[in-house]
Amino acid sequence: MTSAPDTVGSTDTVGSTGAVGADAADVSARFRSVLGHFCTGVAIVTACEDSGRATQHGEPVGFACQSFTALSLDPPLVLFCPARTSGTWPVIERAGRFAVNVLAGEQQDVSAVFGSRGADKFSSVSWTRAPSGSPLLDGVLTWVDCAVETVHEAGDHYVVIGRVTALGESSARRPLLFYRGGYTVTEAAPDAMPGGPRPDDWF
Rank of each mutant, 00 (worst) to 15 (best):
M1V: 11
A4S: 14
A4D: 12
A4G: 04
P5E: 14
D6E: 10
G9A: 14
G9Q: 13
G9V: 12
S10D: 11
S10G: 14
T11R: 12
D12G: 04
T17Q: 13
G18V: 08
V20H: 12
G21P: 05
A22T: 05
A22R: 15
D23L: 08
D23K: 06
D26V: 12
V27R: 14
R30P: 00
R30M: 15
R32I: 09
L35K: 05
H37T: 15
T40R: 11
A43V: 15
S51N: 14
R53Y: 09
T55C: 08
Q56P: 10
Q56N: 08
G58N: 07
P60I: 05
C65I: 11
C65L: 12
Q66C: 04
Q66T: 10
A70I: 10
L71T: 03
L73V: 14
P75Y: 08
L79Q: 13
L79N: 05
C81A: 15
C81T: 15
T85C: 05
P90F: 07
P90E: 03
L103S: 06
E106T: 14
D109L: 08
S111K: 05
A112K: 12
V113P: 01
F114T: 02
F114A: 05
S116M: 06
S116L: 04
R117M: 11
G118P: 03
A119S: 14
D120I: 04
D120R: 14
K121I: 08
F122S: 03
S124N: 09
W127T: 04
R129I: 01
L136G: 01
L136E: 02
G139E: 07
V140H: 09
V140R: 08
V140D: 10
T142N: 06
V148S: 02
H152P: 00
E153V: 09
D156K: 04
H157N: 04
V160P: 00
V160S: 00
V160R: 03
G162T: 02
T165I: 14
T165C: 03
L167P: 01
A172P: 13
R173Q: 12
R174S: 11
F178Q: 01
Y179R: 09
V185R: 11
T186K: 00
T186D: 05
A188N: 00
A188M: 09
P194R: 01
G196K: 08
G196M: 07
G196T: 06
P197T: 07
P197V: 13
